[in-house]
Simulated scan of single mutants.
Amino acid sequence: MAVKQDGQGERLLMAEKDTISMQLVREALLESCAPGAPSQALLNRVGIDPAQLDQAQARVPASAYAQLWRLLARRCHDEFFCMDPRGLRTGSLAFLCRSSMAQPTLGAGLETALTFLGLMLEHLQPVLVRQQSLAEIVIGEPQDAPRRPFTYFTFWMIVHGVACWLAGRRIPILAIELRCAEPPFCDDYRVMFSENLQFGRPRTRMIFAADCLDLPLKRTPEELQRFLAEAPANILVKYRDPDSLARRIKATLRRLPAGEWPETEALAQQLCISASTLRRRLAEEGTTYQALKDSVRKELAITWLAEAEVGFAEIAARLGFADTSSFYKAFRKWTGSNPGHYRSLILPHDV
C-alpha cells in the first residue's frame, strides 16, 4: 500500500492496482504443472518469484499471471489449466470469440459461446436461461463432489470476460452461486465478479439482468485480433470492479447500517479531502457518491433476498427506505426485476 499526497496536502490511501493473489498462481499450477523445479522454471520465465509461493499475502502483476496462463496453455495444449478431462484445446478462446461475435445480439452470442464450451468440456455443461427480467447461466455437472472453486471461477472469468468484450462494457453480475464450499481467499473473486458470492448452493450459476441479452454486437475482425493479442490479461483487469476510491467507499458503507452512512461532507472529512475533491475524484472514476450508496443498497438487498426468513419490510427498513413500496420501486430501477421475482428465482428449492 502506498500513500499519495498532492499539492493541497490531500492524503489518499491508494490500493495496489492490477495485481493477482499468489493464491491463484498456486491454483493454476495445481493440476497443470507438477510441483518442484519445473514449476519454478515456469514462474521465473514470467517474472514471478517462486519463493513467494508460500507467502499467503503475496501478490503478482496481473500481466505476469496472464503470461503464466498462456505459457501453461501452450505447454499443456489446454486453455483451462487441465481441470477437465477434455479441456479447452489451444485456439478455443479464439474460436469461441470469432463464432460469438458473428451473432446479432449478446444473447445469441452467449448461446453460441456456451454451446461451444459444452461441446468442449466434459464436466461443465452451461446453459443460458431467460426468466422474464432476469437471466442466468447455469452449469450442469456430475452430481458427485463439486469442482474446485478455482475451476468454477476460471470458467466464469472466460464467459464473463468474453461477454463484456462482446458488449463493449461490463455486464453487472447480480449474484454467483457455487456448489463448492467457500475457499479461504475470495477477495480477488469479489473484485472480478461480484460481492454477492454464495457457496454451498444446490447448483452453480451466474445471475444478471436479462436486458443485457438484447445488446447488439458490432465487433470487427481487427478488434478481435487486438482482444486475442492481449488476452487473458485484458479479461483479468479490464472488466472487473476497479480497486479504486469508489470501491473503498463502498467497503466503508457495507460496514455501517444504512442509517449511519455519512453525508458527503462527513465522508470527505474522514478521507482527509474536501467535498469538492471527493466529487471530482469520483467523477473521474465515472460515478457519484449517491450512485455508490445505491450500488451498496442493491448488493445488500440481493444478499438478504437470498435469506428466506428476512421479509421485504425488514429489508426495506435495513436499507433505510421509508416503506416497502419505495424499496420495490428502487429494486426494479436497479435490476429491472421486482424483489418477489428475484427471490422466486434465487430460492426455488427453499420457499
Rank of each mutant, 00 (worst) to 15 (best):
L13S: 14
A58K: 09
L93Q: 02
R70K: 12
A73Q: 06
E16G: 11
D84N: 12
C76M: 03
C82A: 13
V46Y: 01
D18Y: 01
I20C: 08
P104Y: 02
S39C: 14
F80D: 02
L88N: 08
R98D: 14
R98C: 02
L68C: 05
Q23P: 00
D49E: 11
R86N: 15
S32W: 05
D78G: 03
S32C: 04
M22Q: 08
M14S: 12
H77M: 07
S39N: 06
P38Y: 03
V60P: 00
D18R: 09
L93W: 05
R98G: 04
I20W: 08
R74C: 11
P38G: 04
R75L: 15
L12T: 10
A41M: 12
A56P: 13
L30H: 15
Q103S: 02
F81N: 06
Q57H: 12
P61D: 10
K17N: 09
L72A: 03
E31M: 14
L24I: 05
A28T: 08
R70Y: 01
L43T: 01
H77F: 10
L42Y: 11
A94S: 10
P85G: 09
S99G: 00
A58N: 11
N44Q: 15
L13P: 02
L68R: 02
A15M: 11
A64S: 15
L71C: 04
L13C: 10
H77A: 14
L68T: 01
L53W: 05
L42F: 10
A58P: 08
R86P: 00
M14H: 12
A41E: 13
L53K: 04
K17S: 14
L68Y: 04
C33L: 11
R26G: 15
R98P: 01
Y65I: 07
G47I: 09
R45H: 12
L93K: 00
D18P: 04
M83P: 00
L12K: 12
L72P: 07
P61Y: 01
P38M: 07
P35D: 05
R89T: 10
L88H: 01
E16F: 05
S21V: 03
M83A: 13
D49C: 07
D18L: 04
F95I: 06
L13H: 10
L68G: 00
N44I: 07
Q40F: 08
E16M: 11
R74K: 13
G87Y: 04
Q67H: 14
L30M: 09
P61G: 09
L96D: 07
R59Y: 06
L29D: 01
T19I: 12
L88D: 00
D78M: 06
Q40N: 12
L93I: 15
S63M: 09
A41W: 08
L29W: 04
R89W: 06
L72K: 02
A66R: 00
C33R: 00
P38C: 01
T90V: 09
P35F: 10
C82R: 11
D49T: 02
A41R: 15
R75H: 13
L13T: 12
L24W: 10
A62Q: 02
R74M: 15
S39I: 00
G87T: 06
Q57L: 14
E27A: 13
R86Q: 15
C76I: 05
G36Y: 03
E16V: 15
